[in-house]
Amino acid sequence: MWKWLHPYAKTERTYHLCQKLLPWFSLLGLAVILVATVWGLAFAPMDYQQSEAYRIIYVHVPSAVLSKSLYSAMAIAAFVGLVWQVKTSFMAMMALAPVGATVTFVSLITGAAWGKPMWGTWWEWDARLTSQLILLFLFLGVISLYKAFEDKQQAGKAAGVMAIVGVINLPIIHYSVQWWNTLHQGASIMKFDKPSMPPEMLWPLLLSILGWALVSGAIFLLRMQNEILQRELKRPWVVALANKSAASSEGK
């Protein structure tokens, strides 16, 4: 593990790795999202129960799936950082956090928008929506803790501890909210049994999840590069990089 990670503890190498991966993630991601969205919105068959409104799942489901994976990814980055003292790992964690928070927020908004035609109300204290809301709070907590410190190295460690506390708590939250939800049933929650989704609907959904993952990856890579540059502003390699790009833009 350490052997594999060690080269990327050096920020410069990580920066160049991000540079190399970025076009793949961004171009591929955009292409996949485009295909999936057009397919999902225009060509997938209409749901007989929910009519056209169900199509929001092509945004809602990917964002909901990703929000949890991004939180886990953030916690893994934090763990690696704390155990092996890898500085870049904390940078990765903080590059992931706002992406994750945004995605969670999107899943909440789309969930609410979906809820309007389904439940007749913008907000229903449904188990999944509630856990998403708590997840958003966890993300925001980690981000605000990081921002509160001036020393970013210390900030990374502190936010890392909190991210790990959160990730241990995540299944407990999930379970407890479900429990709470079944306990307080009887509200107007419309229980629709999920019929297994026909493949014409499923494929665009899977594609859009992939597309969202790739685009989040691309945004993460960009943020990571940004973070590295900001933190290492005065290191020689950053200065050299800046000079080079300045020279090339003058050459044009």
Binding site: I134, F137, L138, L140, G141, S144, L145, A148, M162, V165, G166, N169, I172, I173, Y175, S176, V177, W179, W180, L183
Partner: peptide, 19 residues
């Protein structure tokens, strides 16, 4: 900040205790 960090973490406890 302390409240912001801790309140979400305490939610399961609140749920189980009140139930």
């Amino acid at each position: 900040l302390l409240a912001l960090l801790l309140l979400p973490v305490f939610i399961p406890l609140l749920i189980f205790a009140t139930s």
